[in-house]
Design a protein around this nucleic acid. Structure first.
Length: 429
RNA sequence: GUGAAUGUAGCUUAAUGGCAAAGCCCCAGACCGUGAAUCUGGUAGAUAUCGGUUCGAGUCCGAUUGUUCACCCCA
């Protein structure tokens, strides 16, 4: 055990069984996202540290203590802790926002140096969807509806939507001041964390889970009362569209996000199925970010979904992953059969596109080859022995039913298989 | 980052401080050219790591490390 190398803390190997779940679910997500006209981009994992400092915010936990940052010959580089900043940077770099709107998505690993826990890892994975150049609220609603469609499609029901509006920066500043004033007035009732946040991020005090704090929090001023008129109208527009789409939501006036760049619409899909890691998919509008990073003023909104949490939630909701198994397993025993079987397998793969043909590798007795065929869960075993070879035929044995083994002329094999496999589908439960 | 629990074969789990076990998995055979059932046999652990207490430590103590739970944070 001691000699076995270990993964770096908080980093996971995704082994075949789990990877199969990921593959299946990632494909589902892509199908939904692309149905809304979003196009995929693939971005570097490394950015100049400055990109994240300026977008996420200097005083956020992510920037202050969770980033993997290193010096690269005088350049400070950072493994991306989230995708939005990189997406915006890429758009600016390539002029994607010059009189253009963009609907983009990406998926991949993110890195945050947090203390690991189930559903929280130092390398984790996110789907990220961003719409730039749209000032909403129709696009706000569409992005939320898109995620709702995904849950519905996959039978994910232990999830609910919370929305809020943070207003424009000016109204947010006014609100923040009011909040600080209120909390300072009741400072003797605040817990240690909240007193600390008073200086750093007073909005987060609203998020406190400390039961002793609930009364204090309940009496705090509410963001909605500080919203500027345009933001309030925007929010009403979003609500109306969500109603039209039949998406249920809850207005959570205490919903704030941990990244500084958000403005107006923020939302979070939360679940009770994953313990403390209850946010599965969350996002919001960031109308000031593109300009802040050096682009033209461009409104934008997006969301990110944690793949690990998404997969866990799917399973918690009873979701199943379709098994992928071979269609045929080719057994070859006896003089000269290996060579013929090897060539035959290639012929089948060429003639029957997409059919999964597994050949027995490494020899073995007839019995052990048949055992492997059974264990592979293939639909059929193809049996090529000396007798079959001399007759130009091959045995086709169903492994998943009581049907008799058939003898097929080698020349007819491809067409017979094609018929049999299309008749019952190449995938079963 | 704070507090707590936990770590024994690939997996699941045994072992009053006294010889480290079992089931599953895997391999082979019983069975001749036919898988699954049954039976027989076989492979495999420096009990996470380092140190301490003890005649003797998987078991007790300390540190380290991984994982997990809550906080924190967030996807």
């Amino acid at each position: 055990m001691s000699k076995k190398p270990q993964t770096v803390r908080g980093m996971n190997d995704i082994l075949p069984e789990v990877a199969a779940s990921w593959q299946y679910l990632e494909k589902e997500v892509e199908t939904v996202i692309e149905a809304y006209g979003y196009r995929q981009v693939r971005l570097p994992l490394l950015e100049h540290t400055e990109v994240f400092r300026r977008s996420i915010g200097e005083v956020t936990d992510i920037v202050e203590k969770e980033m993997y940052t290193f010096d690269d010959d005088g350049d400070s580089l950072t493994l991306r802790p989230e995708a939005t900043a990189s997406m915006v940077r890429a758009g600016i770099t390539h002029g994607l926002f010059h009189n253009q709107k963009q609907k983009l998505w990406t998926v991949g690993p993110m890195f945050r140096r947090e203390r690991p826990q189930a559903g929280r890892y130092r390398q984790f994975h996110q789907f990220d969807v961003e719409a730039m150049g749209y000032d909403g609220p129709d696009v706000d609603a569409e992005l939320i509806v898109m995620s709702a469609r995904l849950w519905a499609r996959l039978g994910i029901d232990r999830i609910r939507l919370e929305i809020n509006s943070l207003g424009v920066p000016e109204s947010r500043v006014a609100y923040r001041d009011a909040l600080v004033e209120y909390f300072n007035g009741v400072k003797n009732q605040l817990d240690e964390d909240s007193i600390r946040r008073l200086d750093t991020n007073p909005l987060r005090i609203l998020d406190s889970k400390n039961p002793d704090m609930q009364d204090v929090v309940a009496g705090a001023p509410v963001m909605m009362d500080y919203l500027d008129e345009a933001s309030a109208e925007h929010f009403e527009g979003l609500r109306a569209l969500l109603d039209v789409a039949g998406v249920e939501y809850e207005i959570n006036p205490r919903l704030v996000r941990g990244l500084d760049y958000y403005s107006r619409t923020v939302f979070e899909w939360v679940t009770d199925a994953l313990g403390a890691q209850n946010a599965v998919c969350a996002g919001g509008r960031y109308d000031g970010l593109i300009e802040k990073l050096g682009g033209r003023p461009t409104p934008a909104i997006g969301w990110a979904m944690g793949v690990e949490r998404f997969v866990a939630l799917y399973e918690a909701c009873g979701g199943k992953i379709p098994e992928v198994r071979p269609d045929v397993y080719l057994v070859a025993v006896g003089e000269g059969t290996l060579e013929r079987a090897f060539a035959l397998a290639e012929e089948l793969r060429a003639d029957l596109d997409g059919v999964r043909v597994e050949t027995n590798l490494g020899g073995g007795s007839f019995k052990s080859q048949m055992k492997r065929a059974d264990k592979s869960a293939a639909t059929y075993a193809l049996i090529l022995g000396e007798q079959e070879l001399s007759e130009g035929r091959i045995g086709l044995k169903p492994l998943r039913g009581n049907d008799e083994q058939e003898s097929i002329a080698l020349g007819d094999l491809a067409s017979v298989l094609k018929q049999k496999l299309s008749g019952q589908g190449s995938q079963q439960e």
